[in-house]
Design a protein around this nucleic acid. Structure first.
Length: 563
DNA sequence: ACGGGTAACACC
DNA sequence: TGGTGTTAC
């Protein structure tokens, strides 16, 4: 049977939950006398008071900012409490924050699909829970609405009136509302409840955004902090994005955003609307171009992944300027420390989550003061990962040496008559990736295996790393501007970037097929407003090998057979 | 060349 | 692939 409008079929309810100055909260829970005080978490206290990595909201009032020095913070806020990040093996150890993050994830994952986006952020897909609530106990039928939910900010709702809570209550409960709004209202109630549970069970506060997709939810979660939540009704999207500085959008805070400003003269998301998809693709490539076109319209088909654990583990340290490592022995020492930490975390992951990592990668930053190419990057190297701290240390050192040979090229090694090598290492890190679940019955055998056990089945994954040769990779020019960097890419993509559609498609106001069967080229022919609504609302369809960003609108649909 | 230490991801 | 660059917190 034909439907006259798509209704809200396909509308999702997505939340982004963001912990407030998370590291500070973790420290305040540990030392309650710090609660309510201007506080910051700082690492490496020795030099200029260390670098701030988290700042409490009390301290922000004084103008204290992340990435200030401890000393600077003291200047603008003399009474600030500076708490040091724990140090072990001579480096910052973030494990207490990771563990605290896990506590939060385990609570936030109760009501729907949950994606750990970082140590202190998650996305939730609350569509099913919201639909269920709407069917069983819709807000309009509920007498008492959570105090927390009543404190929601509803974008587009008159926030200047005197009776804020009553307005919100009315918005949450109104029965004449658009179906999409009702879903978001349910989402807001669920998120308020979740946030209260987080507070009760962990003592941590968080902020959240509730919207129809990840992009908007993320944007909203940052709009009212700390300890508040913000809802983005469908009709408010345009008004929200139009005046929004382009740099505020996730992914546009860096070079791409600058390129939009400088090369296209676009300063707000609204100004981006003037550029056709083709034009954006021409300049930024087919994927990024389409993604930008969608960003301008608040369209984002990205799914919430359903992943509670990190995809990789890493341990690293910088050795700035004068502290650069100049001998293999010192590099070996620090690699051993880093690998020990990594190994410990891998064993915890195995223990707690029954997962193993398959790839070990070494990254380094280096300088050399010989002659020309002193800007060359130290190449990353990877190899199969063998479990056991000493094995990882051994492999990491081999990877480093392979990288160093390549970095130095077939040049001479020493500056003559000098005590140094001609090179220095300013950063080292090791990481473990390609993490996969293992069958539970193979776990126990593994857990008892250790370094010394040559028969440990997990210890022999690697081929002989000595054989890693310095084949690979063409040097890379250093980057200054975004367009420069991607010039080659863009040209190539243009060869394939033929964009869609002829002129005379069907144009109609009713459809007699289901939304997820619509052919993308048909959508392109519909009236513009309807197009946007459709694209916005339709649930993304799963397909393999699609870049996260989505290379074309077609990816949000399943193509139909005959078209 | 102190914005640290980690992460995820796009692209070749 | 593995390796490099970008972005974010």
């Amino acid at each position: 049977m034909p439907v006259s409008r798509p209704e809200s079929l396909g509308a999702r309810v997505i939340a982004h939950v963001d912990m407030d100055c998370f590291y500070v909260q973790v420290e305040q829970r540990k030392q309650p006398h710090l609660s309510g005080q201007p506080t910051a978490v700082v690492q490496y206290n020795s030099w200029k008071g260390g670098g701030l990595i988290a700042v409490s909201y009390e301290a922000r009032k004084y103008g204290v900012k992340r990435s200030m020095r401890g000393d600077e913070a003291k200047q603008v806020c003399p009474q600030i409490q500076l708490v040091k990040v724990p140090v072990s093996r001579g480096k910052a150890d973030l494990c207490i924050y990771r563990n605290a993050g896990s506590e939060v994830v385990s609570i936030l994952s109760r009501k729907g699909r949950c994606e750990r986006a970082s140590i202190d952020e998650v996305y939730l897909d609350l569509t099913d829970a919201s639909e269920a609530m709407l069917a069983e106990t819709p807000p309009e039928s509920v007498e008492i609405i959570d105090e927390e939910a009543l404190k929601s900010h509803i974008l587009g709702l008159n926030e200047d009136g005197s009776n804020l809570k009553e307005n919100v209550r009315e918005w949450l409960r109104r029965s004449e509302a658009d179906h999409r709004d009702k879903l978001l209202a349910c989402g807001a109630l669920i998120v308020a409840e979740l946030r209260m549970q987080v507070l009760k069970e962990t003592e941590f506060t968080c902020s959240a955004g509730i919207a129809h997709n990840k992009m908007l939810a993320k944007l909203a979660s940052g709009m009212n902090k700390p300890a508040q939540q913000t809802v983005v009704p469908f009709v408010s999207v345009k008004g929200l994005l139009e005046p929004l500085p382009i740099k505020k959008m996730k992914q546009l805070g860096g070079k791409l955003g600058s390129s939009l400003q400088i090369d296209l003269g676009v300063n707000t998301v609204g100004e981006l609307l003037q550029f056709s998809e083709e034009k954006l693709q021409e300049r930024y490539g087919i994927n990024t171009g389409t993604w930008l076109w969608n960003v301008a319209r608040g369209i984002c088909g990205e799914e919430v992944e359903g992943r509670l654990l990190p995809k990789s583990h890493g341990s690293g340290k910088t050795f700035p300027g004068p502290r650069a490592l100049k001998t293999i022995a010192s590099v070996e020492h620090w690699l051993n420390e880093l690998c020990e930490e990594l190994s410990e975390r891998l064993h915890s992951d195995l223990d707690q989550n029954k997962r193993i990592a398959r790839t070990l990668t070494l990254h380094a930053r280096a300088f050399k003061f010989s002659d020309t190419d002193s800007h060359k990057k130290f190449p990353s190297k990877s190899c199969p990962l063998r479990y056991g701290a000493t094995k990882i240390q051994e492999d990491a050192l081999n990877l480093f040496q392979a990288g160093l040979r390549e970095y130095l090229g077939s040049h001479r090694i020493k500056t003559q008559g000098s005590q140094h090598n001609g090179w220095g290492i300013t950063g080292l890190s090791v990481s473990a990736s390609k993490i996969v679940a293992i069958p539970s019955d193979t776990c126990e055998a593994m857990q008892s295996a250790d370094d010394k056990d040559p028969n440990c089945s997990f210890s022999n994954q690697a081929q002989d790393v000595q054989e890693i040769s310095a084949l690979s990779s063409p040097g890379f020019q250093s980057t200054s501007s975004y367009s420069e960097l991607h010039e080659a890419d863009v040209r190539k993509e243009n060869l394939f970037g033929t964009s869609t559609l002829g002129q005379n498609g069907p144009r109609r106001d009713t459809w007699d097929y289901k939304i997820d069967e619509i052919d993308p080229s048909v959508v392109n022919e519909l009236p513009p407003e309807i197009q946007e609504e459709l694209r916005y609302l339709v649930r993304p369809q799963k397909r393999a090998n699609i870049p996260k960003r989505g290379s074309s609108i077609a990816h949000y649909f399943l193509p139909t057979k005959n078209s």
